[in-house]
Design a protein around this nucleic acid. Structure first.
Lengths: 222, 222
DNA sequence: CAACTTACTGACTGGTTAGTCATTAACTTG
DNA sequence: CAAGTTAATGACTAACCAGTCAGTAAGTTG
């Protein structure tokens, strides 16, 4: 395919000199373009030339702001994901209600973030590149996985304390996230390739239904 | 890293001519080497030179048996996965017992296949390459996903008929597979990169526990 | 063992790409 | 507005790599 590399920079009115000096705006524009290209092609196949074209600059300018393709990649991941993790933590801290409602809320929230922001594109990229870039996997674990697991643990603890949930061993927490991760992975790889996307809200609701009834204390017990 | 490219070909005794004519054995040896290299590096980063070296032949010989890197890749996927899918179908057809036992058995079986064969490496590769090779995604859907879903449906139908399970909508079946897929993906990408592999049996058991109690009819109902 | 067939080899080709740097031109300052 | 500063450029390079093919030698046949 031959993308018509539409630059993301603004200002298409009257005077448009071929060169512009806009030191402040470049990094943001480059990161936005990098997100587009990296999530469409993965790390290896993404070409700095294309990212630069999308950002409306030359390749030389790109290397003026980021020292290498790999550093650009990491900066893009940071910028895309971290704000969303922080917001999720704040939501959890302030939540009032039962653990069951909170669990449903978390899955629904993840579904919404995945389908409305670029975060949904990250799991595929991270999984694809983890072997080649272990440093990136480390970063992902400590800045995203650990923090998401901590939020889930707080929900589980609340549920156990209230007698709503049975205890869940720490190593099995990933199972509770797996449907939402599967959703993101499917919709960013196989789904589009075969024209069968999954509905995020439906998956979140069904996952909550299956998983909740499993971790809930059944009537007549404890 | 510098792999000491250990050839897979046998015969390290006395007379070892530098060249050998073994038309019959080559394809199998090449596919085995291709599996190693493709699953270690992904499609894009795998180099035919390295695959050839691992198979104990030159690159020219590789192209004598397979017309291109892509065709070699597809042949490797076929050879690795299809026998296991067939075996799973045969197991399901002959199964005698409750739907609950069958569900647990299926997850345990998938865990075993993932950890003892190379099938566990396929999901990561497929997800990584689906966008660049939609044809491969198509093949994977029709030859693996559809067939695995059909086996799961047969379990669900059996359970509903026996009053063990509540009905599950077709589009949500993927949720029931998601923990096992997550297991395979984690253990082939992020897990090794950060030195935290998941125990397949534990994940299978916990996933079955969570999911079963969700799809089971609770005491006192229909 | 000579003549022949063909599996096998590896140097080579044509194409691609991450990163550089001498040059250019957009802005700033006195 | 002239001189100075630096953001921006794009041609270039060094390296890499999928696939080729003229040549080599292993094995076979009469």
């Amino acid at each position: 395919m031959t993308h018509a590399s539409t630059p993301v920079c603004p200002d298409s009115s009257a005077t448009k000199p071929r060169r512009q000096r806009r030191k402040e705006a470049r990094p943001g524009e480059i990161l936005e373009a990098a997100l587009e290209v990296f999530s469409a092609k993965g790390f290896a196949a993404a070409r700095p030339d294309e990212i630069a074209a999308r950002a409306g600059i030359s390749k030389g300018t790109l290397y003026l702001y980021f020292p290498s393709k790999e550093e650009l990649f990491k900066a893009m991941v940071r910028q895309t994901v971290l704000p969303n993790v922080g917001e999720m933590e704040r939501w959890a801290t302030g939540f009032e209600g039962s653990a069951t409602e909170m669990f449903r809320g978390l899955l629904a929230r993840i579904a919404r973030i995945f389908s409305t922001s670029a975060v949904g594109r990250m799991p595929k990229i991270i999984i694809s590149e983890a072997t080649a870039f272990p440093e990136l996997a480390q970063f992902w674990i400590s800045e995203v996985v650990e923090r998401a697991f901590a939020v889930m643990r707080s929900i589980l603890d609340r549920g156990v304390a209230a007698g709503e949930f049975t205890p869940v061993r720490a190593e099995a927490v990933i199972v509770l996230f797996s449907p939402m991760l599967m959703l993101a992975l499917w919709n960013q790889s196989i789904g589009p390739a075969v024209g069968r996307p999954l509905d995020p809200e439906m998956i979140a609701a069904e996952a909550a239904r299956f998983l909740l009834d499993g971790i809930r204390v059944r009537e007549g017990e404890g």
